[in-house]
Amino acid sequence: MKGIILAGGTGSRLRPMTSIVNKHLLPVGNYPMIHYALDKMADAGIHDILLVIGKPSAGLYVDYIGSGAPWNVRVTYKIQEEAGGIAQALGLADSFVRPGEKLLVLLGDNLFEDSLKTFVKDFEAGERGAEVFLKEVADPRRYGVPELQNGLISRIHEKPELPSSAYAVTGMYLYESDVFDIIRSVKPSARGELEITDVNNVYASQGRLGYRLLSGWWTDAGTQQSLLDAGLRLSGNGKT
């Protein structure tokens, strides 16, 4: 299985800190944020990883991560020239993943406690087209919310006023290699981006979108408060 870490984006909610450095290089606990995504990939047994980054701070990524040797992984870099949405960033991995291979995708600002090792192993052995990771949250209206039906997701609703469940779709995904065909088929949203929710909803419409529930803590470290909370959880511990 291949690993894809998406670490582009402008980090607008974390300005002015992100006016100086990309948000995925900001310190969380004792390490830069990106450190933990690499930890999770390595722990899951994935050793061939593509890191999608923006032009700003590209040299700093290489300085810190290098070839990936400190994690016993092999890291390849790809530049996302401009913001075009999560699905557009994932589409840049098309040539990195061979037909028939499966992939684990992590958004670099998603920090979490659970090991993904068992989930990855089960997905590799199974035949489901895609799986997303869900976490129960206090206010699901802030997130993509799944509609659950017969052990699958029938649709994901983005920031619904009346959520159909108490779960949020996190920035962690498992896909078959046909995800790139689906990305090419979706149209830009009203904000001009290729949305990962639209990609996932294609799988849902085909009855091929499963899910896994996270039992430990999870945060999208994209705000000042969530960045602080994650740092407090991770202080003194290089592993999540």
Rank of each mutant, 00 (worst) to 15 (best):
I5L: 06
L6V: 15
T10L: 14
S19H: 11
V21P: 00
L25E: 02
L25Y: 04
V28C: 10
Y31T: 08
H35Q: 08
D39L: 06
A42K: 13
I46R: 01
D48H: 12
L51Q: 05
G54Y: 00
G54D: 04
K55Y: 06
S57V: 12
A58H: 13
A58D: 08
A58L: 11
D63S: 13
D63W: 15
Y64I: 10
I65T: 02
I65F: 06
G66A: 12
W71G: 02
N72E: 12
V73W: 04
R74I: 12
R74P: 00
V75D: 02
V75Y: 00
E82Y: 14
A83S: 10
I86G: 00
A87S: 12
A93E: 04
A93K: 06
D94C: 07
D94L: 09
F96E: 04
R98M: 10
R98E: 08
P99V: 11
L103K: 01
L104C: 07
D109S: 11
N110D: 09
N110S: 15
N110F: 14
L111T: 03
E113G: 02
D114T: 09
L116Q: 01
T118R: 15
F119Y: 13
A125W: 07
E127Q: 11
R128A: 03
A130W: 02
V132Y: 00
Y143M: 05
Q149V: 11
N150Q: 14
G151R: 14
S154Q: 06
H157W: 09
L162V: 14
S164F: 06
S165K: 12
S165N: 08
S165R: 10
A166M: 11
T170C: 05
S177W: 04
D178A: 03
S185M: 12
V186F: 01
V186A: 04
K187G: 01
K187W: 11
S189M: 03
A190L: 15
L194G: 00
E195K: 15
T197W: 15
T197C: 05
D198E: 15
D198I: 02
V199G: 02
N201F: 03
N201H: 08
V202D: 05
Q206G: 02
Q206L: 15
Q206D: 07
Q206N: 08
L209H: 01
Y211G: 09
L213T: 09
L213K: 15
L213F: 12
L214C: 07
S215M: 09
S215P: 02
W217E: 02
T219D: 04
T219S: 09
D220A: 13
D220K: 12
A221N: 05
T223E: 06
A230W: 03
L232S: 10
L232I: 10
K239W: 15
